[in-house]
């Protein structure tokens, strides 16, 4: 059996070795891709769900934060592969058009008052269409809870166990 050999003379493994992998230039930086955003109706559909999801204490969610959320979700979708976009858009479509049927109202979700939207989405979540509700809810929640104001309100500010 050949014996594994260690030929590296770079010293112990660690972040110091990263100097050998040059960071991407601005032109190669994935953050600076030119994006084709999904159409505005996708943003409207996401916002309609978010308004219901984050309606707390019978008060509407902060509109500025909802705007930020919807815009960031679109950025996420634009960077995702075709299949991810398909799943998220299909889920949003299901929430927009099928969720209202759970409250016997054949209208787009965004046309319903927020209270009725909440009821429709909660019923859909418990139905066999629950995974579609979860897919959208997961994306909205993940982004929403990254907002500094949400973190402050929910006492979930990012922190490490030890100081770096």
């Amino acid at each position: 059996m050949p014996t594994p050999v260690h030929l590296s003379n770079l010293g112990p493994p660690g972040r110091e070795h990263l100097r050998l992998l040059p960071p991407p230039s601005l032109a190669d930086d994935a953050r600076h891709r030119k994006l084709t955003l999904p159409p505005a109706r996708v943003q409207r559909a996401a916002r309609a769900v978010a308004e219901a999801l984050f309606h707390a204490d019978d008060k509407p969610a902060d509109p500025a934060r909802l705007d930020w959320l919807a815009a960031d979700l679109l950025d996420f979708m634009a960077r995702a592969t075709g299949r991810a976009q398909l799943i998220l858009r299909a889920s949003l479509w299901a929430l927009t058009w099928l969720a209202p049927l759970f409250v016997f109202t054949p209208l787009p979700l965004g046309w319903l008052p927020v209270g009725k939207r909440v009821l429709a989405l909660e019923r859909m979540e418990l139905s066999p269409l629950g995974p579609a509700a979860l897919a959208v809810k997961a994306m909205l929640c993940m982004i929403w809870f990254e907002h500094p104001d949400t973190q402050r309100e929910t006492r979930t500010e990012t922190s490490c166990l030890r100081e770096p």
């Binding site: 309606h55 707390a56 204490d57 809870f145 979930t156």
Partner: peptide, 18 residues
Amino acid sequence: VPNGVLAATMPGFGNNHA
């Protein structure tokens, strides 16, 4: 898991979820 994912696993929407 991130707090947003934890939030997503909580059942409900609106007041119940909050």
